Amino acid sequence: MIVFNALQTSLNAGIGRYSYELAKELYMKNPKKLKIVIRKEDQELFSFARSEDLIIAANIKNSKIRNIYEQLKLPWIIHKKFPDAIIHYPDTMAPLFSKNKVVITIHDLAFKSLKGVFTWKTVWWKNFITNLSIGKADKIIAITKFTKDEILKHYPKISEEKIVVIYNGFNDFSKESIREKNVGDKIKNINKPYILTVSTISPRKNIDGLIKAFNRIKGEVNENLIIVGSNGWMYNEVYKLAEQLELNDRVIFMGKVNDDELKYLYRNAKIFAYLSFYEGFGLPPLEAMSYEIPCLVSDIGSISEVVEDKAIKVTPYSIEEISKYLLEMTRNSHILDRKGMSKHIKKFSWRICAKETFDAVSSINIYL
């Protein structure tokens, strides 16, 4: 038996998506071997599962309450009901007091590799909980080879056999219809071609670098720059930069959008840019590729690994290089093999992710 913790489904964008899609695919393939932990608020999303296969938690209103529940109450509930089950937590934090076997998924170790982009409290907490969790876990899933290398780099005493690389799946929006009624007028009324980026606005995402590069070529291109994503840490600095460069009429901040609006924006984008300094995986470029949009991405870390040779890669630290290739891509729509993109993205499916995850968990020496 596997108990999958999907409490983050609607509390966290990235890990929430991973939790939901993986839990759903695992359950559809192995309904008799899976229980899913969910928030009461998410019951409707998990209507595909029988009620007896759900462990429903009430009053989990935010991540702080979730963390406490996951550490102090949930392990006790699981052990009482399913003493031989293996617990899968979908992020770095393991249930430290669990008497069951434990699997965790590590998406990245950005707090160790990037300096100056997290508060000292965040760095302290992540170091503390990750150190303990890596020791507690019986198996660790790394979502890329890059993430596995990061784990071995920062935790050299860990056995490499304890880590298995399993790529995320992704949602191929291009195969889904767009419900126009869900698309806001601000998006529908876009009347110029545009360069698109989809990312939380925070220092490690390098949105400011993209804006600076765009500023260099603004007089040579007709495209605007559209930025989609929620405000993260230090987001005000990015807004201030656009104002200082007098780009308010050329750089458009859309904020958080719904799935139909995101499909609409992908479908009509001319170029997609994703120039983060650090990612554990880097999902948006795959989403863009599903629409056969030429992508400009960072040449470092997991992004390069995930896109392989199906995107143009630049160093995210060079504004000159970013601007050079942005300009070239606006002028040459055939700069990349678009057919190759469609073939490439088939490597990343939730079906494959679920099968490999189930096999990895099953390899722990407990009869499922």
Score class of each variant (00 low, 15 high):
residue 4 F to R: 09
residue 8 Q to P: 05
residue 9 T to W: 09
residue 10 S to R: 11
residue 19 S to A: 14
residue 21 E to F: 01
residue 23 A to Q: 00
residue 25 E to M: 08
residue 25 E to N: 12
residue 31 P to Q: 13
residue 31 P to S: 08
residue 33 K to I: 01
residue 38 I to D: 06
residue 45 L to W: 03
residue 48 F to H: 09
residue 53 D to W: 05
residue 55 I to S: 06
residue 56 I to N: 01
residue 57 A to Y: 00
residue 58 A to W: 10
residue 59 N to G: 05
residue 61 K to D: 11
residue 62 N to W: 02
residue 68 I to K: 13
residue 78 I to R: 03
residue 86 I to W: 00
residue 87 I to H: 03
residue 90 P to V: 12
residue 92 T to E: 15
residue 98 S to K: 05
residue 99 K to D: 14
residue 100 N to S: 10
residue 108 D to Y: 00
residue 112 K to C: 03
residue 114 L to D: 02
residue 120 W to Y: 14
residue 121 K to R: 11
residue 127 N to D: 15
residue 133 S to V: 11
residue 136 K to Q: 13
residue 137 A to I: 10
residue 139 K to V: 02
residue 139 K to E: 00
residue 145 K to G: 15
residue 146 F to S: 15
residue 147 T to W: 00
residue 152 L to Y: 05
residue 158 I to G: 14
residue 159 S to E: 15
residue 162 K to N: 00
residue 162 K to R: 03
residue 164 V to G: 01
residue 166 I to A: 12
residue 172 D to R: 13
residue 175 K to F: 10
residue 182 N to L: 12
residue 182 N to M: 12
residue 187 I to N: 04
residue 191 N to L: 12
residue 202 S to T: 08
residue 206 N to Y: 00
residue 208 D to F: 03
residue 209 G to M: 13
residue 212 K to V: 04
residue 214 F to P: 07
residue 214 F to Q: 06
residue 217 I to V: 11
residue 218 K to D: 12
residue 222 N to A: 06
residue 228 V to P: 07
residue 231 N to A: 14
residue 231 N to I: 07
residue 232 G to L: 01
residue 236 N to Q: 14
residue 236 N to E: 15
residue 238 V to R: 08
residue 242 A to S: 14
residue 251 V to F: 12
residue 258 N to C: 05
residue 262 L to H: 02
residue 262 L to F: 01
residue 264 Y to A: 15
residue 264 Y to G: 14
residue 266 Y to C: 06
residue 266 Y to S: 09
residue 266 Y to P: 09
residue 275 L to C: 06
residue 283 L to A: 07
residue 286 L to F: 02
residue 287 E to T: 05
residue 288 A to K: 07
residue 290 S to P: 07
residue 292 E to N: 02
residue 294 P to K: 04
residue 294 P to A: 05
residue 301 G to E: 00
residue 308 E to A: 12
residue 314 V to M: 11
residue 316 P to M: 07
residue 318 S to N: 08
residue 320 E to V: 05
residue 321 E to D: 12
residue 321 E to Q: 10
residue 324 K to A: 13
residue 327 L to A: 07
residue 328 E to R: 08
residue 331 R to S: 12
residue 341 M to C: 02
residue 351 R to N: 15
residue 366 I to C: 02
